[in-house]
Design a protein around this nucleic acid. Structure first.
Length: 671
DNA sequence: TACGTGGCGCTTTTT
DNA sequence: GCGCCACGTA
């Protein structure tokens, strides 16, 4: 084999590092940021400046002559990637351009766009989100010769979960079924057939799902003589954020890229691994020192976020877990005014009333509403609280529900573009035509077959859509809208070449969708506004393929300055699941419904591993609080939940706390 | 295809 | 106790 000699970017003349790491970081952070090349594990406790450390690590590499494109920075969320890259750019504006940074999925997308054929896809493939995937799975039943209405089979939604777990955890269908869906074990063979049919369909439609972005990338990277070798040479330094939440597939993705240089720094907190149900394996981080022999281990344990009282409770909360790196959060802040509060309430209604009244009290004390959060294990735990807050006129927002790009009206108009860009996209086509009055599943299917025949083996339409659909019949009820639709298709993709995304969106809304939206949606105005926002967002993109990929991979639009200002004006309390609160902090945090069966969730309480994850979730919840932490539990489950009244025990996580870590509040009725 | 009614099931959701 | 989906009917 030829010898490889790697030239590093020449170090700038008199290149005394501009940044004084010892002054900007604490000793633990600085040690990690300036670590020598080679494998390294950074155990970063909650609130310890993990992002800061990672940011300075990148800066340190750049300052020491590593070229930006030799750095790969992997995160789980777009927000995290964006934030870190922006902070690096702030530190070193001149040298940071060209870093490969993004989510696992977006980096996978980038690789596959460069080498689609190597894994059987064609350029311009589109990305299915979860809903698209389910739509496609419905079609797949027919392919495999099964009746989708047959109740024995898992619903598309569950099927998607099964396939996803299999891919992400590197398990066979049978293993997944045995572990999580034992009532489907008898159908192992059939489900396997469905999976094969699904794979064929994706290739035929030239579409990939989220999991493919990783799995096909791994397949691309695996061969020693394939394109992977190029990237193994290129990425001399790999950094991974939130490593505790990686699954088996992601771990392999990283390992494949790190094979050559072995200069990989993974950062995370095993105590905050809370996504095992999505395939995350906390074992990845726990075993890292074994998998990468000679790995340096750094610990960042100084917590800048919370008062010592809150940290004492947090440390006690996680102590019950055995599978963890022992660590203790060390407070940097002076003692706060009070210990965390533990509040026993009669029932859910009283809990809601208590939280509401305490929030009002805090507001009177000068705490702003957006510095307060109420966290819970499951969204329905917040139902009574929502009623109570509304009754008292306390504004709140809930971090749940559909994200911007997943809303029906957004997906509807985007489907026009998807079909224009990729005329093989049956799912997008059917979604579009079903918007027309008088056209349902069977008419959509007929139209699709007609179009498929006209398209032939090509991946791009050469003539006009009018020609392609010549002779296709629709009912009298649909005729007018159908003509209008064909006209629109030809406008947004003349000769099969799609126009710029914002122009296409404007055409679609104006010609077809606006009328539909008016008749269909009670909140037409809001939706119309969203569509304008979407079109404006699209202006950044010239290439429709790139725009569509971005939509699939990004869950929220950047807040415009206008909306930011608007939301600054009216402060709101945050209501959030603990999962969605990870990485965030508030001055005052309430954790509610701390009952056996609720938190820990009944479904995880039976297995030791499940219970440890619930305990980590509790740990994540309490470590969100800066100044004040309030834990509450009702004694009875009443209206607001199903099944009638029931006594409930306080959570075992409360029993596990030493009594001197909190102060009990006695709540009594004042009327 | 569109609309009304009964039955079922009901954690979390980075991409 | 409610909402969604699937099935029945026009």
């Amino acid at each position: 084999m030829a010898r490889t000699f790697t030239l590093n970017r020449p170090v700038r003349a008199n290149a005394a590092p501009a940044l004084d790491y010892a002054a900007l970081l604490n000793a633990q952070q600085a040690a990690a940021a300036t670590a020598a090349p080679g494998p390294a594990l950074v155990i970063a406790g909650a609130g310890s400046g993990k992002t800061r450390t990672l940011t300075y690590r990148v800066a340190y590499l750049l300052e020491n002559g590593v070229a930006p494109q030799q750095i790969l920075l992997l995160t789980f969320t777009n927000k995290a990637a964006k934030e870190m890259l922006a902070r690096v750019a702030d530190l070193l504006p001149e040298t940071s351009q060209g870093i490969w940074g993004g989510t696992f999925h977006s980096i996978g997308n980038r690789l596959l766009r460069r080498h689609p054929e190597a894994v059987g896809f064609k350029p311009g493939f589109s990305i299915l989100d979860r809903e698209d995937q389910e739509d496609l799975l419905k079609l797949v039943f027919g392919d495999a010769g099964f009746d989708p209405k047959d109740k024995r089979y898992p619903k598309p939604e569950v099927l998607g979960d099964i396939f996803s777990l299999a891919v992400n955890m590197g398990l066979s269908i049978e293993e997944v079924l045995l572990r999580k869906y034992d009532y489907f074990v008898a159908l192992t063979e059939e489900i396997g057939k469905l999976q094969a049919a699904y794979e064929r369909r994706k290739l035929a439609l030239n579409v990939v799902d989220f999991d493919d972005l990783l799995e096909k990338s791994v397949r691309l990277l695996r061969p020693a003589d394939g394109p992977g070798e190029h990237y193994r040479r290129q990425f001399q330094f790999i950094l991974v954020d939130e490593y505790q939440d990686t699954n088996r597939l992601q771990a392999e993705f990283i390992d494949l890229l790190a094979q050559r240089h072995r200069s990989i720094m993974v950062v995370g907190d095993d105590a905050q691994s809370i996504y095992s149900w999505r395939g995350a394996e906390v074992q990845n981080i726990l075993d890292f020192p074994q998998r990468y022999a000679g790995a340096a281990v750094y610990r960042i344990e100084t917590n800048y976020r919370s008062t010592p009282q809150i940290l004492e409770l947090a440390n006690a909360a996680i102590a019950g877990n055995t599978r963890q790196f022992q660590k203790t959060l060390v407070p940097a802040r002076p003692p706060g005014a009070a210990k965390p509060a533990l509040v026993e309430l009669m029932d859910g209604a009283q809990q809601a009333l208590f939280v509401t009244q305490r929030i009002l009290e805090l507001r009177d004390e000068g705490v702003e509403l957006d510095e307060i959060a109420v966290l819970y294990r499951a969204h329905f735990h917040a139902m009574e609280l929502q009623l109570e807050l509304t009754r008292h006129g306390v504004p709140f927002h809930i971090t749940s529900g559909l994200r911007f790009f997943e809303q029906a009206h957004i997906k509807d108009v985007v489907s026009f573009l998807k079909f224009a860009v990729n005329p093989r996209d049956e799912v997008a086509f059917k979604r579009v035509v079903r918007l027309l009055p008088g056209i349902g599943g069977s008419a959509a299917d007929k139209l699709w077959r007609h179009f498929e025949a006209a398209l032939g083996p090509r991946d791009r339409l050469e003539g006009s859509f009018h020609e392609a659909f010549a002779g296709a019949k629709v009912g009298a009820k649909s005729a007018k809208a159908w003509t209008q639709l064909l006209y629109t298709f030809d406008e947004i993709a003349p000769q099969g070449q799609s126009v710029a995304p914002h122009a296409a969106l404007e055409s679609v809304v104006e010609a077809v969708y606006d009328d539909y939206a008016k008749s269909k949606f009670p909140n037409y105005d809001q939706r119309r506004e969203d569509l304008v926002t979407l079109a404006n967002y699209a202006r950044q993109y010239q290439d429709p393929t790139e725009f569509l990929a971005e939509l699939a991979l990004v869950s929220a639009v950047e807040q415009t300055d206008a909306t930011k200002r608007a939301s600054d004006d009216d402060e709101r309390v945050t209501l959030s699941s603990v999962h969605q609160a990870k990485g965030l902090e508030w001055k005052v945090v309430f954790v509610i419904s701390l009952n056996e069966g609720s938190f820990p969730s009944q479904r995880n309480a039976d297995s030791p591993a499940g219970l440890e994850e619930e305990r980590r979730l509790f740990y994540v919840a309490v470590t969100r609080a800066c100044d004040e932490l309030v834990l509450t539990y009702p004694n009875m489950r009443t209206m607001g939940s199903y099944g009638g009244d029931l006594f409930m025990r306080p959570s075992r996580f409360i029993d596990e706390l030493p009594e001197d870590t909190y102060e009990r509040w006695d709540v009594e009725r004042g009327w």
